[in-house]
C-alpha cells in the first residue's frame, strides 16, 4: 500500500498544478455568491434558500470536479506514453488505478470542504445561523463525489474524455431518480427497467439538504450507513474499471 500512497501523492501534486481545478473552484464560488444574492423576499426563508441551493451547487460542483479531475487522467497517460514505464516495473495495474483514484479523491474532498467553508462564510455574511449538520452534509456530498469519480474512471477505459462527460452526467441524473420515476421512462418494459435500476446507485441517499434547510435532526447512524453505501458502490465501480484495465492490451 506504500506504493499506492506514494503514487496518490504524486497524482495529488499533479492535479493541484492543473488550472482545471482552480477554474472549477472559481465557478462554484461564483455560483454560491450568485445564489446568496438572489432575494427570497422573506427574511425567515433566506437561510433555507441559501442552504438548499448552496448544497445543490456544491453537489453539482462535485460532479464537475470528478469530470474535470479524472476524465483525462488515463487517456493522457496513455497518449503521452508515460503509462508504459509506470506499469513496466514500479506499479501493478490495480496500484496505478488506486493511486490515481486516491490522489484525485483527496483533491476533490479538499476542494469540496473549501466550498463548504465558502458557504459558511456566505451565511455568516448574511448574519444567518450555520446548521450543525452542514459539515456532515458536505461529507456525504464528498462520498457522492468519490462515487462519481469512480464512475469517471470506469468510463475513461471505454470512452474518450468528450464522451465521458455526457455519460457520467447521464448516470448522475438517472441515479437521482426513484424506481418508479425510472420505470416511467419506458413504462412498456417495467421488468427490464427495474432490473437496470438495480445496477444503478440511489443518489438520494446522499441528499440531506432538505432536512438541514428545514431544521430537522438526522440520526447519526444514518450518516454511517450512507457513507458505507457510497464507499461500497465506489469500490464496485472501481473493480469494474480495474477489470476493464486488466483486460486492456497497452502498447
Amino acid at each position: 500500500m506504500k506504493t499506492v500512497f506514494t503514487f496518490s501523492l504524486m497524482t495529488l501534486r499533479m492535479l493541484a498544478r492543473r488550472r482545471t481545478l482552480w477554474g472549477i473552484l472559481i465557478v462554484i464560488f461564483l455560483a454560491l455568491v450568485g445564489i446568496s444574492s438572489v432575494p427570497s423576499f422573506d427574511v425567515g426563508n433566506q437561510g433555507r434558500f441559501i442552504l438548499d441551493f448552496g448544497l445543490f451547487g456544491i453537489e453539482v460542483g462535485a460532479l464537475l470536479l470528478a469530470l474535470g479531475l479524472a476524465s483525462n487522467l488515463y487517456p493522457r497517460d496513455r497518449e503521452t506514453r508515460s503509462l508504459m514505464p509506470l506499469l513496466a516495473v514500479p506499479l501493478a495495474r490495480w496500484q496505478y488505478l488506486l493511486g490515481r483514484f486516491f490522489g484525485a479523491a483527496l483533491v476533490q474532498a479538499a476542494a469540496l470542504i473549501v466550498t463548504c467553508l465558502g458557504l459558511m462564510l456566505i451565511l455568516l455574511f448574511h448574519e444567518l445561523p450555520i446548521p450543525a449538520d452542514l459539515l456532515p452534509a458536505t461529507l456525504l456530498i464528498i462520498v457522492e463525489g468519490w462515487f462519481l469519480l469512480s464512475t469517471v474512471f470506469f468510463f475513461s477505459f471505454i470512452a474518450s474524455p468528450p464522451l465521458n462527460w455526457p455519460l457520467t452526467t447521464m448516470l448522475f441524473v438517472v441515479s437521482q431518480m426513484s424506481v418508479s420515476e425510472f420505470v416511467g421512462i419506458m413504462p412498456s418494459a417495467p421488468g427490464f427497467m427495474r432490473f437496470v435500476r438495480l445496477l444503478l446507485p440511489h443518489a438520494d441517499v446522499f441528499h440531506i439538504k432538505d432536512p438541514i434547510a428545514h431544521g430537522f435532526e438526522i440520526e447519526p447512524v444514518y450518516f454511517i450507513i450512507a457513507i458505507f453505501y457510497g464507499l461500497c458502490y465506489a469500490a464496485f465501480m472501481l473493480s469494474l474499471a480495474l477489470a476493464l484495465f486488466r483486460g486492456r492490451d497497452i502498447k
Binding site: H202, D204, D210, P211, E219, A226, C232, F236, S239, L242
Partner: peptide, 28 residues
C-alpha cells in the same frame, strides 16, 4: 419519502452495500 426519514429502508441500504462490496472483492 427521502431515505434519511425512512429508517425501514436503512437495512436494505446496508444489504445492498454488502452485495456491492462482495462484488467488488469478487471481481478484483
Amino acid at each position: 419519502n427521502q431515505p434519511w426519514a425512512a429508517p425501514f429502508i436503512w437495512g436494505k441500504l446496508v444489504r445492498d452495500s454488502l452485495v456491492f462490496l462482495a462484488l467488488a472483492v469478487g471481481i478484483f
